[in-house]
């Protein structure tokens, strides 16, 4: 069912965020003082609204950065404080000793990279086949894909847990890599690519054929190089999802050295089970800041990549 949605989406919203001329302004009659004041006021209202609305989105991140340098008893104050009264490095100092934080961060990066690349390969191949190649059982196989999407992941975890155990793959990264690349989580990616390849003009491939390209050549030389937006969308989606992975590692991993960073964050306690508030929050900030910095630099490509092909589902 998802494919139609995506069709609809592709027709409804393939807009470019930066594009769109505004004929309205040019048609306006010369500004009267009244109209100018009116516009000034509406601007003020709009900006105030935007600023107020921004608070719940950015305050938590700012708070966590400063909280990392607070002693624990400053976490809960009335009135609440943003900046530490007494700056301390006690919490931050323990980040790397209480759990193998650096290793966990690398684990997350490595898992997310492998999963993203693997997904792009699997999804682009599948999407291309279903969009542009005529092959037997295409319709039926497509139906198989779609039905897989309706199976909630937490349901099938039980048999998969058992298989992983039987194969001796517990406490390894293998199930964490294989599941998101090949499992039902990959279907959405296939759809995104399929949708994209459906919209490629057939003339391109015909020209390729005349140049003597075979099927593989058409995919490799013509379709794939053009699929930047689809790759971007799938890559962003997959990278975010796998960097955030929590449920599967919780079940399949036991060694802290193998944890992704999200799961590691929940294990900040000292030997007696007392939570280390400022260490945990410091580690949380360290997890978030690099991603945010990358985002700030690449936000245009990021957001536009998403809106163009549509992380449509």
């Amino acid at each position: 069912m998802r494919s139609d949605v995506i069709t609809a989406q592709a027709q409804g919203a393939t807009g470019d965020l930066t594009g769109g001329s505004e004929p309205v302004r040019s048609r306006r009659t010369p500004d009267s003082a009244h109209a100018r004041r009116h516009r000034l006021w509406s601007k003020i209202v709009l900006y105030t609204l935007l600023c107020v609305l921004s608070i719940p989105f950015i305050y938590p991140t700012i708070w966590m950065i400063f909280a990392a340098f607070k002693p624990t008893d400053e976490f809960f104050r009335i009135p609440p404080t943003l900046f530490p009264e007494t700056w301390t490095l006690d919490g931050v100092a323990k980040i790397f000793t209480v759990t193998p934080f650096a290793q966990q961060y690398l684990n997350s990066l490595y898992l997310a990279t492998v999963i993203t690349i693997g997904s792009i390969i699997v999804c682009s191949l599948g999407g291309y086949a279903f969009a542009r190649i005529r092959f037997p059982f295409a319709g039926k196989l497509f139906l198989v894909l779609m039905s897989g999407m309706m199976i909630p992941g937490e349901v099938t975890i039980i048999p998969i847990f058992r298989w992983v155990a039987d194969l001796g793959l517990m406490n390894t990264h293998i199930p964490l890599i294989v599941l998101p690349i090949f499992g039902p989580a990959c279907i959405v990616g296939v759809f995104i690519f399929r949708q994209f390849y459906l919209s490629l003009p057939g003339e391109l491939e015909e020209a390729g054929r005349l140049d003597g390209l075979g099927r593989l050549g058409l995919f490799w030389r013509i379709a794939l190089p053009l699929s930047g937006p689809a790759i971007a969308a799938v890559a962003i989606m997959k990278f975010l999802a796998s960097f955030n992975m929590y449920f599967e590692p919780l079940i399949f991993l036991r060694s802290e050295e193998l944890f992704p960073v999200g799961l590691g964050l929940t294990r900040y306690q000292d030997g007696y089970g007392e939570p280390l508030y400022n260490t945990q929050i410091g580690a949380t900030a360290l997890t978030v800041i690099p991603v945010l910095i990358v985002f700030l630099f690449a936000q245009r490509q990021f957001v536009e990549g998403l809106s163009r092909t549509g992380l449509k589902g």
């Binding site: 847990f161 992983v164 155990a165 039987d166 001796g168 517990m170 406490n171 079940i251 399949f252 036991r254």
Partner: peptide, 8 residues
């Protein structure tokens, strides 16, 4: 218990 159940 998850470790034990998982054969690990």
């Amino acid at each position: 218990t998850t470790q034990i159940a998982g054969g690990d």
